[in-house]
């Protein structure tokens, strides 16, 4: 489910709405208002509950951990659970960084080029090619798994991270292409034409006119690609055969996938594995949102 960013289009933040209000105030309005906040709070509990359990359990002293007492606050705080799982996850974290950073940046760069060409410098057949690229975004990875393992093993790209980076770049292309194509569509054609009149070729226009205005699209594309490469399981599971190259999701599944490890250690390892993407979300959430908020509405 790494392709949840489908149809993500970069858009300008929503316009400020007019403040003047013609709404008819019913006498039931205060109740409706109360009901609305009550419902929102209820949903908030539902969405935050697992995270509460995650954090509280991994910070409890192992002796007071049980599924029955999952909702109780710790009586003493302890980092014992983290200490227990950290050695098993640290390599995975490192590998995931080494994997997700280049995979997202390169995929975004290639996507920028594709997006630019497909929106501003169309070649004959571009309209035919774009939907074909787009379909790659939705393909179930299962349907390429067997040929991919054969090919990567033939190419000697299996086992380490390099092959994994390559496939993340490739399967990320449809999404990054879409993001940049939508973004560059928003640039007025006149700027491009002006550059052409000045004698700039396609490459110069791309590098000197398009790329300098593209950082917001880069932010969106890189964040989405980083998140999906970080969270991927399937490719990592078939392409890394040596545990010293496991991405963190594989390491996580390996140590916490059975129930032979204690509840607190399972929660601590899940928390560690999630922290980087959570951090990206909290710090760069507005780009995350910007990609999301405008989503799926171009049709």
């Amino acid at each position: 489910m790494t392709t949840t960013a489908e149809k993500t289009v970069v858009a300008k933040p929503p316009k400020k709405r007019k403040e003047r209000d013609f709404r008819i105030q019913s006498k039931y309005a205060p109740y409706a208002r109360f009901g609305k906040y009550a419902a929102l709070l209820l949903f908030l509990v539902f969405f935050l509950m697992p995270i509460y359990a995650l954090i509280v359990t991994s910070l409890k002293d192992p002796s007071e951990v049980s599924v029955q007492r999952v909702w109780e606050l710790p009586s003493t705080w302890s980092f014992a659970s983290f200490e227990a799982v950290w050695p098993k996850l640290q390599d995975g974290l490192f590998n995931s960084v080494m994997l997700a950073v280049p995979a997202s940046i390169i995929s975004a760069l290639l996507g920028a080029a594709n997006g630019f060409v497909l929106s501003k410098w169309r070649f004959p057949g571009a309209d035919f090619v774009f939907p074909l690229i787009l379909f790659g975004m939705f393909i179930p990875y299962q349907s390429v798994l067997i040929p991919m393992t054969e090919t990567m093993s033939f190419l000697g790209l299996k086992g380490g991270l390099d092959g994994l980076i390559l496939v993340h770049i490739i399967y990320g292309l449809p999404l990054t292409t879409l993001i940049f194509r939508s973004y560059f569509s928003g640039i007025s054609d006149e700027i491009i034409e002006a550059a052409e009149v000045d004698g700039a070729g396609m490459l110069r226009t791309f590098f000197h006119v398009a790329l300098p205005v593209a950082p917001p699209a880069f932010a969106v594309a890189i964040i989405w690609q980083f998140t999906s490469a970080w969270n991927d399981f399937l490719f990592g599971a078939v392409l890394t055969t040596n545990k010293s190259y496991w991405p963190v999701t594989i390491a996580l599944n390996n140590i916490a996938g059975g129930q032979s490890i204690p509840f607190n250690e399972a929660m601590a390892s899940a928390l560690i594995a999630c922290l980087p993407t959570l951090l990206v979300y909290v710090l760069l959430g507005r780009f995350f949102m910007r990609g999301l908020m405008a989503g799926a509405l171009k049709g």
Partner: peptide, 26 residues
């Protein structure tokens, strides 16, 4: 504009530099 181009170049360099570091020792 220069700063942004610098950012892109830096990103590309970082990405390429990272690649060989993660190759497996065959």
């Amino acid at each position: 504009g220069l700063r942004r181009r610098g950012f892109v170049a830096l990103a590309m360099a970082a990405a390429l530099a990272a690649l060989p570091a993660c190759s497996k020792d065959a």
